[in-house]
Simulated assay, not measured.
Amino acid sequence: MDEVIAQAPAHIPLDDVKNIFEKHNHNVIDTLAELWDIKETVPKEKTKWETIRDTCDTFDNEMSKCIKKTHVYDGSRITTNIELNK
Protein backbone atom coordinates (compact mmCIF):
# COMPACT_ATOMS: atom_id res chain seq x y z
CA MET A 1 0.00 0.00 0.00
CA ASP A 2 2.88 2.36 0.73
CA GLU A 3 4.14 1.92 -2.82
CA VAL A 4 0.76 2.91 -4.23
CA ILE A 5 0.45 5.96 -1.98
CA ALA A 6 3.98 7.10 -2.88
CA GLN A 7 3.31 6.80 -6.62
CA ALA A 8 -0.31 8.01 -6.70
CA PRO A 9 -1.17 11.41 -8.18
CA ALA A 10 -1.12 14.16 -5.53
CA HIS A 11 -4.62 15.46 -6.31
CA ILE A 12 -6.38 12.15 -5.44
CA PRO A 13 -7.52 11.81 -1.80
CA LEU A 14 -6.01 8.98 0.28
CA ASP A 15 -9.44 7.37 0.84
CA ASP A 16 -9.99 7.12 -2.92
CA VAL A 17 -6.56 5.55 -3.35
CA LYS A 18 -7.36 2.95 -0.68
CA ASN A 19 -10.75 2.15 -2.25
CA ILE A 20 -9.23 1.68 -5.70
CA PHE A 21 -6.44 -0.45 -4.19
CA GLU A 22 -9.04 -2.73 -2.55
CA LYS A 23 -11.12 -2.80 -5.74
CA HIS A 24 -8.13 -4.25 -7.59
CA ASN A 25 -7.49 -6.87 -4.87
CA HIS A 26 -4.29 -5.14 -3.71
CA ASN A 27 -2.74 -5.32 -7.20
CA VAL A 28 -0.27 -2.41 -7.34
CA ILE A 29 0.02 -2.24 -11.13
CA ASP A 30 -3.73 -2.25 -11.82
CA THR A 31 -4.30 0.31 -9.07
CA LEU A 32 -1.68 2.70 -10.41
CA ALA A 33 -2.96 2.24 -13.95
CA GLU A 34 -6.44 3.33 -12.85
CA LEU A 35 -5.13 6.19 -10.71
CA TRP A 36 -3.06 7.56 -13.58
CA ASP A 37 -5.82 6.73 -16.11
CA ILE A 38 -3.58 4.56 -18.27
CA LYS A 39 -5.57 2.80 -20.99
CA GLU A 40 -2.85 1.23 -23.13
CA THR A 41 -1.76 -2.24 -22.17
CA VAL A 42 1.73 -3.51 -22.79
CA PRO A 43 1.73 -6.71 -24.84
CA LYS A 44 3.10 -9.65 -22.92
CA GLU A 45 6.06 -11.42 -24.51
CA LYS A 46 5.58 -15.11 -25.14
CA THR A 47 7.63 -17.44 -23.03
CA LYS A 48 9.70 -20.21 -24.56
CA TRP A 49 7.05 -22.79 -23.65
CA GLU A 50 4.19 -20.72 -25.07
CA THR A 51 6.06 -20.56 -28.37
CA ILE A 52 6.65 -24.31 -28.30
CA ARG A 53 2.97 -24.91 -27.48
CA ASP A 54 1.87 -22.69 -30.40
CA THR A 55 4.16 -24.63 -32.74
CA CYS A 56 2.80 -27.96 -31.51
CA ASP A 57 -0.79 -26.72 -31.86
CA THR A 58 -0.07 -25.72 -35.45
CA PHE A 59 1.32 -29.19 -36.20
CA ASP A 60 -1.71 -30.80 -34.53
CA ASN A 61 -4.14 -28.70 -36.57
CA GLU A 62 -2.38 -29.48 -39.84
CA MET A 63 -2.28 -33.21 -39.03
CA SER A 64 -5.96 -33.14 -38.14
CA LYS A 65 -6.78 -31.53 -41.51
CA CYS A 66 -4.71 -34.16 -43.30
CA ILE A 67 -6.38 -37.03 -41.44
CA LYS A 68 -9.87 -35.64 -42.10
CA LYS A 69 -9.10 -35.56 -45.83
CA THR A 70 -7.79 -39.13 -45.95
CA HIS A 71 -9.84 -40.96 -43.27
CA VAL A 72 -13.54 -41.47 -42.58
CA TYR A 73 -15.09 -42.41 -39.22
CA ASP A 74 -18.46 -44.18 -39.64
CA GLY A 75 -19.26 -44.49 -35.93
CA SER A 76 -17.71 -47.90 -35.42
CA ARG A 77 -14.40 -47.83 -37.30
CA ILE A 78 -12.02 -45.58 -39.14
CA THR A 79 -11.41 -46.27 -42.80
CA THR A 80 -9.17 -44.56 -45.29
CA ASN A 81 -10.49 -43.01 -48.47
CA ILE A 82 -8.25 -45.50 -50.34
CA GLU A 83 -10.25 -48.41 -48.85
CA LEU A 84 -13.54 -46.74 -49.84
CA ASN A 85 -12.45 -46.32 -53.46
CA LYS A 86 -11.81 -50.08 -53.97
Score class of each variant (00 low, 15 high):
residue 37 D to P: 00
residue 42 V to M: 11
residue 79 T to D: 02
residue 19 N to R: 12
residue 16 D to E: 11
residue 15 D to N: 06
residue 33 A to H: 10
residue 75 G to W: 02
residue 45 E to F: 08
residue 31 T to Q: 00
residue 84 L to T: 04
residue 53 R to F: 11
residue 27 N to D: 15
residue 16 D to H: 12
residue 21 F to Y: 14
residue 81 N to Y: 06
residue 84 L to D: 09
residue 4 V to W: 01
residue 59 F to T: 10
residue 44 K to M: 06
residue 33 A to E: 15
residue 29 I to E: 12
residue 64 S to T: 03
residue 62 E to R: 11
residue 77 R to T: 03
residue 26 H to L: 04
residue 68 K to R: 10
residue 25 N to M: 15
residue 19 N to K: 10
residue 76 S to E: 06
residue 83 E to G: 02
residue 66 C to V: 13
residue 74 D to N: 06
residue 62 E to D: 13
residue 61 N to F: 09
residue 67 I to W: 09
residue 28 V to G: 03
residue 29 I to G: 05
residue 66 C to D: 13
residue 60 D to V: 06
residue 26 H to I: 02
residue 59 F to G: 02
residue 21 F to E: 01
residue 10 A to L: 05
residue 34 E to P: 07
residue 84 L to P: 07
residue 2 D to A: 14
residue 39 K to P: 01
residue 1 M to W: 02
residue 51 T to G: 10
residue 76 S to W: 00
residue 18 K to H: 06
residue 75 G to E: 09
residue 34 E to Y: 01
residue 65 K to F: 12
residue 79 T to H: 01
residue 5 I to D: 00
residue 56 C to P: 04
residue 26 H to K: 04
residue 17 V to W: 02
residue 65 K to V: 01
residue 38 I to S: 05
residue 66 C to A: 12
residue 56 C to V: 09
residue 44 K to S: 12
residue 18 K to R: 15
residue 3 E to T: 11
residue 26 H to Y: 13
residue 41 T to E: 13
residue 85 N to G: 07
residue 57 D to Q: 11
residue 13 P to A: 10
residue 55 T to M: 14
residue 26 H to W: 01
residue 62 E to Q: 15
residue 37 D to L: 07
residue 67 I to K: 15
residue 20 I to E: 02
residue 44 K to G: 06
residue 71 H to R: 00
residue 5 I to N: 04
residue 70 T to R: 04
residue 24 H to A: 05
residue 62 E to T: 11
residue 86 K to M: 07
residue 73 Y to T: 03
residue 63 M to Y: 09
residue 81 N to Q: 07
residue 81 N to C: 04
residue 18 K to D: 09
residue 43 P to R: 14
residue 30 D to S: 03
residue 3 E to M: 04
residue 79 T to S: 05
residue 2 D to E: 05
residue 34 E to A: 03
residue 32 L to D: 06
residue 13 P to E: 13
residue 39 K to V: 03
residue 61 N to Y: 12
residue 12 I to N: 01
residue 69 K to E: 12
residue 58 T to M: 12
residue 31 T to A: 01
residue 40 E to S: 14
residue 51 T to E: 08
residue 44 K to L: 15
residue 45 E to N: 14
residue 18 K to T: 00
residue 81 N to K: 13
residue 46 K to I: 11
residue 10 A to F: 14
residue 12 I to Y: 11
residue 30 D to K: 06
residue 5 I to A: 03
residue 22 E to Q: 11
residue 82 I to V: 15
residue 77 R to L: 10
residue 6 A to I: 07
residue 59 F to H: 13
residue 44 K to D: 11
residue 18 K to G: 08
residue 54 D to W: 01
residue 62 E to S: 03
residue 68 K to C: 14
residue 6 A to W: 06
residue 36 W to T: 12
residue 34 E to I: 01
residue 48 K to W: 12
residue 14 L to F: 09
residue 72 V to L: 05
residue 83 E to K: 04
residue 20 I to C: 01
residue 36 W to M: 00
residue 83 E to H: 00
residue 48 K to C: 06
residue 51 T to V: 13
residue 22 E to H: 13
residue 23 K to N: 10
residue 64 S to N: 15
residue 37 D to G: 03
